[in-house]
Design a protein around this nucleic acid. Structure first.
Length: 255
DNA sequence: CTTAATGTTCCCCA
DNA sequence: TTGGGGAACATTAA
């Protein structure tokens, strides 16, 4: 999302910004609009799942939640939907925030550093193993814990565990050095490949230009309950772990 | 009508 | 203090 939205925003001046959801923009929405008005976008970056938009006057963050989308459009109000809860009119074009479930957030200020763990594509093996040892929890919920690693979500946790051959209920602190190393590598590979594929468009995810991703075609376990495992043919199993759907191959990922 | 969905936070309990 | 379980948030699609 950052990669596709950035070129449309950098150097742009926000002519006006309007917000219409008390869930997406909690607090004083008029105040947020006022802060953004006339600001110039200097950079668009990412920390974990938070999108950071740096302005000449400060920074604000966007989290897409489950169904949030940032969409750029030339022809301003035409791209609006019943679930457009943020409209940024720019000196060139508009940026829309669309989010049916309204689980996303748009807030003034940066992300508190102590809320997020290391970036999964930056952390080294040693540090990764050290952090694994500190947690007694099961590996699947730990991967979703943003303080452990910032940015891994449900699809990528399941796909990484399959790739590493690790059962989702395995005890994080008791993974063998070889398994821990395999997981470290699998997370890197899965994320890097998924990014190259433009993400997973399961239902309606699209990037800022409206393009779908293609990683869902390559899902080995996520959303494939009952289908034969690509590696061994055993039907993929789905269980609930920490209230999240968890997909794995009972043969390739032994307990 | 019921269930589950790309996420996070909060509360209760052990 | 940590971790598990559950609920909540709001909407849509199967």
């Amino acid at each position: 999302m950052v990669r596709t939205v950035a070129p449309h925003l950098i150097g742009r001046r926000i002519v006006s910004a309007e917000f219409t959801s008390r869930h997406v923009t909690p607090g004083d929405r008029a105040k947020l609009s006022k802060r953004l008005k006339d600001a110039v976008v200097q950079s668009v970056s990412r920390r974990g799942k938070f999108i950071l938009l740096k302005l000449d006057s400060g920074v604000f963050t966007v989290h897409l939640g489950m169904t949030g989308k940032l969409l750029v459009s030339q022809n301003d109000m035409k791209a609006r939907t019943p679930h457009t809860y943020g409209i940024f009119v720019l000196d060139q074009g508009v940026l829309l925030y669309d989010d049916p479930r309204q689980f996303g957030k748009i807030e003034w200020g940066s992300v508190r550093a102590d809320r997020l763990g290391p970036e999964p594509l930056e952390i080294g093996l040693e540090e990764f193993v050290k952090r694994l040892k500190k947690h007694k929890s099961r590996i699947k919920p730990l991967l979703l814990n943003q303080k452990f690693l910032a940015g891994v979500g449900n699809i990528y946790a399941d796909e990484s565990l399959f790739s590493a051959g690790i059962h989702p209920l395995a005890n994080a602190s008791r993974l063998s050095p070889a398994r821990a190393a395999a997981l470290h590598q699998s997370i890197r590979e899965v994320l890097a490949f998924a990014i190259r594929q433009g993400g997973s468009s399961i239902s309606d995810y699209v990037d800022a230009e409206g393009n779908r991703g293609y990683f869902q075609i390559h899902h080995k376990v996520y959303g494939r309950e009952g289908e034969p495992c690509a590696a061994c043919g055993t039907p993929i199993r789905k269980i609930i772990v920490g209230q999240r759907g968890t997909h794995y191959c009972p043969r390739c990922q032994r307990r």
